[in-house]
Simulated scan of single mutants.
Amino acid sequence: MQSAVHDKELFRLVAEGDEAAFRRLFHAYVPKLLPAVQHLTKNAAVTEDILQEAFLKVWLSRDKLPEVEHPRAWLTKIVYHQCFSYLRRQAVHDKALHVIGEQPEATSMEDDLAFNRLLRTVAEAVQALPPQAKKIYLLSREGNLKIPEIAAQLGLSPNTVKNSLVRSLQAIREQLAEAGHVLPLAVLWLFLFGE
């Protein structure tokens, strides 16, 4: 069992940018956290993604590590937050699929035309975004990058990226509404960001 004193020392080293200490922290905690995450997600690949995302957050927030009094509890909280974010997204995704699944399977030519108009309106709305917002949106939607990955690639804070995506979603939603397309926010988010 790893001691809290040892963990605090690792946190201090990670806060200073010590990558070897970060690897030790990762290898010490992943085996402890993996079974619980696996139990919640029921998916090995998702479990791995969640753990990697959680430790990426630790690295990106390393300046806060010296203030953490209970490292194990803090790490566990971050991992569980990632789990529940995934489960919440999955529930929205499943609900959207269920709603879509209730629609008749055969689409008419009119439905196809409406969908193509919707795609054109979204493309126009994306083109109208400010350059940085457009870049962030495209990295998210077409590059399939997560907020921390976009932040790291563009040298921005994750909050800046998240706020930009929210503003882009609002702008796209307004343009869709002006064009007569009304989608529930959850379905629009799934359509635009695939989450």
Results as ranks from 00 to 15, higher is better:
residue 3 S to W: 07
residue 5 V to K: 10
residue 8 K to C: 10
residue 9 E to H: 13
residue 10 L to T: 00
residue 12 R to H: 13
residue 13 L to K: 15
residue 18 D to F: 06
residue 19 E to R: 15
residue 19 E to A: 15
residue 23 R to N: 00
residue 24 R to C: 01
residue 26 F to Y: 15
residue 28 A to E: 03
residue 28 A to W: 03
residue 30 V to S: 02
residue 31 P to Y: 03
residue 32 K to G: 00
residue 33 L to C: 03
residue 34 L to M: 06
residue 35 P to D: 04
residue 35 P to S: 08
residue 36 A to S: 13
residue 37 V to G: 08
residue 38 Q to S: 15
residue 40 L to R: 11
residue 40 L to Y: 14
residue 41 T to N: 00
residue 42 K to F: 04
residue 44 A to I: 08
residue 44 A to C: 02
residue 47 T to K: 05
residue 47 T to E: 02
residue 48 E to R: 14
residue 48 E to K: 13
residue 49 D to S: 14
residue 51 L to E: 01
residue 51 L to W: 04
residue 52 Q to Y: 12
residue 54 A to H: 06
residue 55 F to G: 01
residue 57 K to C: 00
residue 57 K to P: 00
residue 58 V to M: 06
residue 59 W to R: 10
residue 59 W to D: 03
residue 60 L to H: 07
residue 61 S to T: 12
residue 61 S to C: 10
residue 62 R to I: 06
residue 64 K to F: 11
residue 65 L to P: 04
residue 65 L to D: 03
residue 66 P to F: 11
residue 66 P to L: 12
residue 67 E to C: 05
residue 67 E to T: 12
residue 67 E to W: 12
residue 68 V to T: 08
residue 68 V to Y: 09
residue 69 E to S: 13
residue 70 H to D: 07
residue 70 H to V: 02
residue 71 P to L: 05
residue 72 R to H: 12
residue 72 R to L: 08
residue 73 A to E: 07
residue 73 A to N: 02
residue 75 L to P: 03
residue 76 T to H: 09
residue 76 T to I: 00
residue 77 K to C: 01
residue 80 Y to L: 15
residue 81 H to P: 02
residue 82 Q to T: 08
residue 83 C to S: 09
residue 84 F to R: 14
residue 85 S to G: 14
residue 86 Y to I: 04
residue 87 L to I: 07
residue 87 L to N: 03
residue 88 R to M: 12
residue 88 R to N: 11
residue 90 Q to N: 11
residue 90 Q to P: 02
residue 92 V to E: 02
residue 93 H to D: 01
residue 93 H to T: 06
residue 95 K to Q: 10
residue 95 K to S: 04
residue 96 A to H: 05
residue 97 L to W: 10
residue 99 V to S: 08
residue 99 V to M: 08
residue 100 I to P: 00
residue 101 G to K: 05
residue 102 E to V: 02
residue 102 E to G: 14
residue 104 P to M: 06
residue 105 E to V: 14
residue 106 A to H: 09
residue 107 T to W: 15
residue 107 T to G: 07
residue 108 S to V: 07
residue 108 S to Y: 09
residue 111 D to P: 05
residue 113 L to P: 00
residue 117 R to N: 13
residue 118 L to Q: 09
residue 119 L to D: 08
residue 121 T to A: 15
residue 122 V to K: 07
residue 124 E to N: 15
residue 124 E to L: 15
residue 127 Q to T: 12
residue 128 A to M: 13
residue 134 K to S: 11
residue 135 K to I: 06
residue 135 K to Q: 15
residue 136 I to V: 11
residue 136 I to A: 01
residue 137 Y to E: 02
residue 138 L to N: 05
residue 138 L to C: 07
residue 139 L to T: 01
residue 141 R to E: 02
residue 144 N to D: 03
residue 146 K to G: 04
residue 147 I to C: 07
residue 148 P to E: 05
residue 152 A to C: 06
residue 154 L to A: 06
residue 154 L to F: 12
residue 155 G to S: 09
residue 160 T to G: 08
residue 163 N to A: 08
residue 165 L to R: 04
residue 167 R to H: 04
residue 169 L to M: 07
residue 170 Q to D: 02
residue 176 L to A: 04
residue 177 A to P: 00
residue 179 A to H: 11
residue 180 G to W: 14
residue 182 V to G: 03
residue 183 L to R: 06
residue 183 L to H: 06
residue 185 L to I: 09
residue 185 L to A: 09
residue 186 A to R: 09
residue 187 V to K: 07
residue 188 L to W: 11
residue 188 L to T: 11
residue 189 W to L: 11
residue 189 W to Q: 12
